[in-house]
């Protein structure tokens, strides 16, 4: 937080690689999510297993419209289509025009955009990991030490009460959520994506198998995308609550204004 009466020192919080990869991922998330919804719309049903049940039921999620009535079926529970799902401008489609790239029905272009940014995403992940390893930042910034696990509960309680007093060093909740995104959700996104590729499946048959089959991988891909979208929303909210100017300065320029007395070894 910026406190005019007690200006703490400016400290280097983010490396150049962290800042560049952060914004590249932000762009990737935007394009991958919206082109991904375009691809989902081509067959707005998710299944569990190797194949899609047309003559049997292994559907997990189904979004559509019948006789002008929208519906969403989740795990066999049927609900009336709510909000924007089911139709858009009178035509049956799962996610509406404003949520897809391109806005109209265009699976081919959605795939072109999706696979381009998928490669950008993977390259960014590798560059970030190499940079973080070389600089030794993983242990310093993301590793959950004993004191972080011990402080997790009170940190979570404070965040739930919208008391987000961030400091120059990441707190327990920041370490845990950033670590989960970088080392669990991001790799899962790549692996579930690869598990849908028939070419990659032939060379790496264990991949769809451990994920429960190609259609399960497609379902997981969708679920992890939803989790990343949830992370994005909470992440932006936390930035706003924790002092958006200082946080934005840090992720743009690298410099973060710490509290007085907080910094000793940065």
């Amino acid at each position: 937080m910026d406190m005019p009466d007690s200006p703490g020192p400016l400290v280097r919080r983010h490396t150049c690689i962290t800042r560049i990869t952060h914004w590249t991922w932000a762009a990737c998330l935007f394009f991958l999510l919206l082109s991904g919804l375009q691809i989902f719309n081509a067959h707005p049903v998710l299944y569990w297993g190797d194949q899609s049940g047309f003559e049997f039921d292994n559907a997990v999620l189904r979004i559509g419209a019948e006789d002008d009535r929208r519906f969403v079926v989740l795990f066999g529970m049927r609900a009336r289509g709510f909000g924007v799902l089911g139709t858009s401008d009178g035509a049956a489609r799962a996610f509406p025009q404003w949520a897809t790239i391109p806005s109209g029905v265009d699976l081919a272009t959605g795939r072109v955009i999706h696979f381009f940014f998928a490669w950008v995403f993977v390259a960014t992940l590798l560059i970030w990991l190499a940079g973080a390893l070389v600089a030794g930042r993983l242990r310093r910034d993301l590793l959950m030490r004993r004191e972080h696990w011990a402080g997790l509960r009170s940190d979570l309680a404070a965040h739930l009460r919208f008391r987000c007093r961030h400091s120059a060093r990441y707190g327990p909740l920041q370490r845990l959520s950033y670590g989960l995104v970088l080392f669990v959700l991001f790799p899962l996104m790549v692996l579930t994506g690869l598990a849908m590729s028939p070419g990659a499946n032939a060379a790496l048959p264990w991949l769809p198998e451990v994920l429960g089959g190609r259609q399960s991988a497609r379902t997981l891909h969708f679920m992890v995308a939803a989790a990343l979208t949830g992370f994005f929303i909470v992440h932006v909210a936390m930035v706003l609550l924790a002092g958006p100017l200082n946080e934005m300065r840090a992720i743009l320029t690298g410099w973060y204004r710490a509290d007085v007395g907080e910094v000793d070894d940065v």
């Binding site: 194949q51 899609s52 047309f54 795939r111």
Partner: peptide
């Protein structure tokens, strides 16, 4: 074998 359609579905 499993047939994978570009639309997203599969059938064996």
């Amino acid at each position: 074998t499993r047939h994978d359609c570009v639309e997203g579905w599969s059938c064996i």
